[in-house]
Every structure is written in structure tokens, then in C-alpha cells.
């Protein structure tokens, strides 16, 4: 059985279908990019994977566990913005990543606190943020904030990492640095990653697979009548070159 299993998942809001019978599966350690036009349910799909929302129909299982009903430590997430806590310094953000889930109060004391601080300091050293350890996130550049957000998400050792346009707000140069940072982390951890992106090049560069979300057909009377699904599933290994090597066998058939 695959690591992540998505079985005929549909989601609609007020009876307006957003996603329609999405099925896919991913192996452990795969990096899956998700692209598609605006409003095609990419972010909805990510929220479903995150268990922030429940699908109207279908189910999502991760590592054979029962479908989650709320976000938990088996899923890590980085959003485009607001992913770090603005009232904590960089170091406190990382300590909090260990502390929040440690007990009911979300606080650590004594030796455990020391250990969490040590881990935080090591991580800061590794991700190159040690020099701003005591600064607040608002004082950091966009790239630094996202590096912190990714490191923070990984502190909880999630089974899958979900990225919602994590580099969407960064300038092109910083984006490339962040790609290297993310690939390095991935080599180290072998993490399973789902990344929603608007940038096709980024999707193919980072991903092992690129899923395209789109509406399979258009209702000429009511454009909102039909939900989106996965219309293409590209193999994007060897750095996505050639970019579009359509795998007919993984092509998701559209059911009538």
C-alpha cells in the first residue's frame, strides 16, 4: 500500500463542487508538485491533506493511519505567509515547535527546556539563522522567514510536509536559494512533500511528479457546475528535463 492514499475525494462548498473524485497515491519520500489555474482546488486539496477540512466524499490516509479529523503533528505545513509566530523571537519559534506539543500547557521546563533550546540552536546554526536568533520575525527578510517556517515545521518530525505556495512572495533570486535549501533538507530527511505552486518551472524543478489540477470539462451554462480533478500526472525526475514527459499509465482517467 502506498504511503499517501487519496481515494475518490470530492469537496464542495454550499453544494458548489470544488474537487470532483480526486484519486492519487504517493510513495514515501516522493516530492509532489501541484499546479493549476487559480480556483482549481489546489489549495483545497492541500487543506484536505492537512485535515484542516473534511472531504464531502472519499478518504485520505497517510501511512495506513485512520483518516485524520483535525491537523496534527503527523502533518507539517508552511504557508505563503503567517507561518511563524510573530510574538516569538526566531529562537523562541523553534523552541515553541518542540514545546507546544510536549504537554497540555505547551511549555517546557528544566532539563527538557534546555534540550529544546539546544536543538533550536543547532537548527539555527544549520539553516544559517544563528545571527538573528533573538530578532523577531518581522525584522527578517521574506526568505529568512520561510526558512524559519520550514525548519519549525520539520521540528515536529511530520510524516508529510505540505507547502502552500511557500516561495510565492519571494523575489526570484531568493527563490532559487530557497530551492537549494529545500532540496538539501529533503536529501537529509527523505521527507514526503506536497507543494502547491503557481510557478511551473519551480514545480518541475523540485518535484518528482507534477500534478495538474483542472476542470475536465466545462458546463457552458454554469461554469461552476463541475469540480476540478487531477487531469495530468507528469514524471518530473531528472530535474524535469524534458519538462513534459506524460506518463500515460499514470494519467488519471476521467470517469463519466
Amino acid at each position: 500500500m502506498s504511503f499517501v492514499e487519496v481515494e475518490r475525494v470530492s469537496q464542495s462548498y454550499d453544494r458548489r463542487p470544488i474537487l470532483d473524485r480526486v484519486s492519487m497515491s504517493a510513495k514515501e519520500g516522493e516530492f509532489i508538485s501541484i499546479v493549476g489555474a487559480s480556483g482549481c482546488g489546489k489549495s483545497t486539496f492541500l487543506r484536505l491533506l492537512l485535515a484542516q477540512e473534511q472531504p464531502t466524499r472519499g478518504r485520505i490516509t497517510i501511512a495506513g493511519a485512520r483518516p485524520a479529523r483535525e491537523p496534527g503533528p503527523d502533518r507539517g505545513v508552511v504557508f505563503q505567509r503567517y507561518s511563524v509566530f510573530p510574538h516569538m523571537s526566531v529562537r523562541q519559534n523553534l523552541v515553541a515547535a518542540s514545546a507546544l506539543g510536549a504537554n497540555f500547557f505547551g511549555c517546557l521546563f528544566g532539563a527538557k527546556r534546555k534540550a529544546a533550546q539546544k536543538t533550536a540552536d543547532d537548527t539555527l546554526e544549520r539553516i544559517g539563522l544563528a545571527h538573528v536568533a533573538h530578532a523577531y520575525p518581522s525584522a527578517l527578510s521574506g526568505g529568512m522567514q520561510q526558512r524559519l517556517a520550514i525548519a519549525q515545521a520539520l521540528m515536529a518530525r511530520p510524516k508529510i510536509l505540505l507547502l502552500d505556495e511557500p516561495f510565492g512572495a519571494l523575489d526570484p533570486g531568493t527563490r532559487i536559494t530557497m530551492h537549494e535549501f529545500l532540496m538539501e533538507l529533503r536529501r537529509e530527511t527523505g521527507m514526503t512533500v506536497f507543494m502547491v505552486t503557481h510557478d511551473l518551472g519551480e514545480g518541475f524543478k523540485l518535484g518528482d511528479r507534477v500534478l495538474v489540477f483542472d476542470k475536465p470539462r466545462w458546463d457552458p451554462v454554469d461554469p461552476n457546475a463541475i469540480g476540478a480533478t487531477i487531469t495530468y500526472d507528469f514524471d518530473a525526475r531528472d530535474s524535469g528535463i524534458p519538462f513534459q514527459r506524460l506518463q500515460e499509465k499514470t494519467h488519471v482517467p476521467i470517469e463519466a
Binding site: 492537512l50 484542516q52 483535525e70 491537523p71 496534527g72 503533528p73 502533518r75 507539517g76 505545513v77 504557508f79 505567509r81 503567517y82 507561518s83 511563524v84 509566530f85 510573530p86 510574538h87 516569538m88 515553541a96 515547535a97 514545546a99 507546544l100 506539543g101 510536549a102 504537554n103 497540555f104 500547557f105 505547551g106 511549555c107 517556517a149 519549525q152 515545521a153 521540528m155 515536529a156 511530520p158
Partner: peptide, 27 residues
């Protein structure tokens, strides 16, 4: 408070109380 922050805290394993104490209260 941005939903993103609350969701992030949940993915770090925080309880409702911990989210109130460590995320909402200070802000």
C-alpha cells in the same frame, strides 16, 4: 488571528489550551 498560525500550532501538536496560552494570549 491568521488561521495559518492556529493551523501551524496544531501541526506542532498543541492542545487548545496551549494554543490559547502560547499563541493567542501573548498576541
Amino acid at each position: 488571528l491568521p488561521t495559518e498560525q492556529i493551523v501551524k500550532a496544531q501541526t506542532l501538536g498543541a492542545s487548545s489550551f496551549a494554543i490559547g496560552l502560547r499563541v493567542a494570549l501573548p498576541q
